[in-house]
Structures are given as C-alpha cells and as structure tokens.
Amino acid sequence: MSPEHPGGLTRPAAVRTRLLKVPAALLLALFQTAPSMTAAGITIKGSDTMVILNQRWAENYMEKNPGVVIQVTGGGSGTGFTALINGSTDICAASRPMKEEEFRALEKKYGSRGVEIPVAQDGVAVYLNETNPVNELTLAQIRDIYTGKITNWKSVGGRDARIILYSRENNSGTYMFFMEFVLRNKDFSPYAMSLPGTAAVANATSRDKNSIGYGGSAYAKHIKFCAVKADTDSPAIEPTEENILSGRYPVCRNLFFYTLRKPRGPLEQFISWVMGPEGQEIVAQTGYFPVKR
C-alpha cells in the first residue's frame, strides 16, 4: 500500500488508476534515460561457491536500479584474485581470505593491498539422530568420521555401532564447503551416501539411529545438532543463530568481496546494499548465514 493510501481503504477505481499512472510514467522516464545517464557496469568474478549468491544479488539489485549492469562469473576464488590483480574485474568474490603472495602481487602493481569486505558466511550444522548419546564432536573427529578413519561410534564415546554417513551430491556447494573446510580437501569415504538436498539428509538422519549428516541449521525435526569443538580444549558450540552470528561456531567461514581500492560511486552503492538488510535477506534465502554483526 502506498503512503497516500492509509489503512488500505478502497477508493474509486478512477482515482486508483490515476495514482498508479504517475509512478509508472516516472519509472518509464527513468528507464529510458538511465542507460545514457549512469551506464554503470560492475563485474564480479571468483568463487564458484558464491556464484548463485552473487547472481541473486545482481538480479535483485539490477531490478531496483535499472541503470546498473552487473556481470557475474565464477571460476573459483583463485581465478577471481588473478582477475583482480589483472584489473579485469571490479569485485573478486572469494570463499577464502587473500593469500600473502596475492596481496604482494596486488601491491606491486597498484600500490594497494585491496579492500576486504566479508559479505556473508558459509557454514554447516552437523546432524545426529535424536537417540544418539553423542552430543559433541571435535572438528578433527568429524573429519576422521567422514574420511572413513573412524567407523564406530564407540571411538567417539557413543554406542558400539557402525557410523552411517550421509552426505550431499558432489555438485552441491555444501558438499564443496564440507570437503574444503571440514575435511581439509581430503576425500569423503566411499561409504558416504549422497542424498539430494539438505532436507533429504536431515530426514535420513532422523530415521537412522546411528547416522550423521550435515547441512543448514534450519532443519530441526527429529534430529539434534551436534555441538562442535574447534579442538579438544575448546568449548563445544551449538549452531544457534547467536553463535553463528557472533562467529563462535567453528564450522563456519567468511565469504568475501575484494576490491582494489575503497569502493566509490555505483560500486559503493551496490556493496552497501549487499551489506544492508535487503542484501543480507538474500543471503539467508540462498542458504548462507548473514555476516557477523
């Protein structure tokens, strides 16, 4: 409802159409003149994990700002950094922080170490069956379980039963994150069963009493979230929204935008929109966690 329209009272149809015509004409005028006025192009290149997120941001932003054209490509975080160094992209999207040699290359060429902006968080919750006596695991234990080194719950303080592994299909971003972040690029055990989607993993974990699964933290029916310890001495942290936003939950990484210099003009507007409520709402919708507050 528009502000001139308090309480949503019905007006005569003729008045309503006239009211609609004004913004429509304005929009049309904006649309026609916009390209010549502010034909701003922004390119985002980098992380494959972030491609879908970047696309959603770009689509929504372009819809609201018809003068801006945002081009999104993937290729991997490394590709993105190379493109930033070569000057062929405005924003490098990265699922890992910039490495020292990349910083150096950037500094040598431009005299700037770039600007790092955390824009979202990528993380997974580890699921256990409700009846499982195990409540917490260290990151190392989760890694050993999923690479097939630990195969019995007894080794981590549970029942004497085989550990049943549920995983995602290898084309999923969650699979990639888990492999890179938790397994440290080791392979999954061949006995890890791949299911389509987080809901399927949560469902299977709820039906299988000796199973373990992973996925988003929004699915909680008949499963429990495993509290995770970064190492044996750290406290066990559950994947609650509070712990994730504060950065205490350890199965979580930042997703970044890198720019060469402090963003200005349309680039600055886009990035502050991404960081704002609308951009962060899209983060949550796409299945990632909003950035730390």
Binding site: L165, E169, N171, P190, Y191, S194, P196
Partner: peptide
Amino acid sequence: SGNAAVSSWSPTDPFRSLSATIAAEMGEV
C-alpha cells in the same frame, strides 16, 4: 540406493548405479 560409490558386492551395502550417477551429476557439471 544411498548413492555411495562403494565397490563391494555385498547386497547389504549401499551402492551407486551408472544411470543414477548420470542423473545426479549431469545437471551441474
């Protein structure tokens, strides 16, 4: 099937079939 690419002949293990592999992986490759 569980879609776990296990090379075991035991019928009590999960498995991954040729056709299911195409179906699961072709979409995003």
